[in-house]
């Protein structure tokens, strides 16, 4: 176990990050403090839509969901749709339900969640997706 931890730490340390690679290309006159590349919401959305379109198995889908929902933003409806379709592709109903549960956690208030549900209603009807609150009506 210890050897595994050490090896994964070393692997992480050895992997050059995207930011570092970007900084190396820039001439040294650039300031180090504020030179982090900032990803826009649109490119974030595009990145995760592509990720979910190419995710090959349940592990990848759930890993992508973990990463996607870890940011300080609510994923766009297109990302949610791509994630749900990825869950359909790997045949995991529970993950599809969980995506909507994640959206419910991330939004600021109920009306935003309602807006998401309204926006994605055709998708839910197409796939026969039931929400968690519809599955467990009492709680």
């Amino acid at each position: 176990m210890r050897a595994q931890i050490v090896s994964s730490v070393l692997r992480t340390a050895a992997r050059p990050s995207v930011v570092a690679r970007g900084a190396r290309a820039v001439p040294f006159a650039a300031r180090a403090s504020s030179s982090h590349a900032e990803e826009t919401f649109e490119s974030f959305t595009e990145r995760y839509v592509n990720f979910f379109k190419t995710a090959e198995d349940l592990f990848e889908v759930q890993r992508g969901l973990n990463n996607c929902f870890a940011h300080d933003l609510v994923p766009a409806p297109s990302v949610v749709e791509a994630a749900v379709r990825a869950a359909r592709r790997v045949n995991d109903y529970a993950t599809a339900v969980r995506v909507f549960e994640g959206v419910k956690e991330k939004v600021e208030n109920k009306s935003q969640y309602e807006a998401y549900l309204q926006e994605l209603k055709p998708l839910r009807e197409e796939l026969g997706l039931t929400l968690k609150e519809e599955l467990y009506t009492s709680s």
Binding site: Y93, L127, T130
Partner: peptide, 14 residues
């Protein structure tokens, strides 16, 4: 097809 799933099966899967 997920539309054919019964509520019990959906609940169990979740």
């Amino acid at each position: 097809d997920w539309k054919e799933l019964s509520l019990e099966e959906k609940k169990a899967a979740y």
